[in-house]
Simulated scan of single mutants.
Amino acid sequence: MTVIIPSLPHAHLSAPPLPMSILRRLPFHSLTPCHYRPRRRFATLAAVRQDTTVWTPTPISSIDTAAESLFHISIDVSSSPDLAASHTLPGQYLQLRLPDVEKPSFLAIASPPSLAASSGAFEFLVKSVAGSTAELLCGLKKGDVVELSQAMGNGFNIDKIDPPEDYPTVFIFATGSGISPIRSLIESGFDADKRSDVRLYYGARNLRRMAYQDRFKEWESSGVKVVPVLSQPDDSWTGESGYVQAAFSRAKQIHSPKGTGAVLCGQRQMTEEVTSILVADGVSSEKILKNF
């Protein structure tokens, strides 16, 4: 999901003089100084808030196609140890800004925190949307420089579903590019192999739109059963079809609601409906983790 941040002026906060032809038509109260004072105060405060973001120039290491309309982007943060160290939890995100583009994007970090520590890299799964900053980003090449803020957000609070013996069942849900922070979670490790039932329901329109298929075997070897769900599969597809929430409803088998946790990221309707299903079956809403 890409969030647009408005650009706010840093100068010329007072209103420009009006032409005399307009001044003659305005009532007296429209010209008093107090008419502009709140706007000036708001603009000043907003500008101060915007100035608190620390931007770090970083080069792109690689841009590769991950799936249809999805791109795998790796950014080198090896020369920015403070930036690399800011990524401490799976599910965190940051802002990315391009040269000569006023509006930055919020991007979830797809790589586990350990990758920044060991290899000095942040990885992202970016959906190219026409007319967006993300589209411009996906059109860049190796060596191009972008600016990153420090990682932010509380990520997925896995402590709420630990220890694994108390929460042997964990259901994970993702749709589209929402798989990005879920990848970070799985590859960070949350003792999936010590739990009896860990399932990832991953929804996409079709296999061409499904990223990270080359990682599924690795994820399953770590204890996560991957259940791809296609909403518009071709005739050769024999797996789950429809929407993620429907596929889960057909095979949920929640044996112990008190020992069940969940992690969700993706399309809003999916997260709302899955949450309703889980809560109705007795799963505590505090054990349903989101990264926002």
Rank of each mutant, 00 (worst) to 15 (best):
S149D: 00
S30M: 13
V48E: 11
D197E: 13
G176N: 10
H10I: 03
A43K: 13
T2Q: 14
F248Y: 07
G239C: 00
F173I: 03
W55M: 07
A84L: 09
V274D: 02
T275Q: 13
S284G: 08
K160V: 10
A66P: 06
V170C: 01
E286Y: 10
D51W: 08
T169I: 09
Q232N: 13
T271Y: 07
K141Q: 13
K194R: 15
P113R: 08
T260V: 09
F292H: 02
F171H: 12
S180F: 00
A174P: 02
N154V: 05
H35N: 13
R199D: 08
Q269H: 12
D193T: 04
D162H: 12
R209F: 12
V54Q: 15
P164E: 02
V146I: 14
T65K: 11
T58W: 05
F292A: 03
D214H: 12
M210V: 07
A46S: 14
L70H: 05
I179D: 07
K252L: 12
Q92A: 09
D235K: 14
L83T: 05
S196E: 13
F28M: 05
N157P: 06
F216L: 09
S184Y: 05
I75H: 09
L115M: 15
I172H: 07
V54K: 15
S128K: 08
A204R: 08
A121P: 06
S62R: 10
P6Y: 01
L31P: 01
M270Y: 05
P57L: 11
N291R: 02
V263Y: 01
P16T: 10
G282R: 00
L13N: 07
R268P: 00
G266D: 04
F216H: 10
L148M: 11
A174R: 00
Q253H: 13
L230D: 04
M270K: 04
C265N: 06
P99K: 13
S285D: 07
D100W: 05
E123F: 07
W219D: 00
P168E: 05
F42L: 15
P163I: 07
Y243D: 07
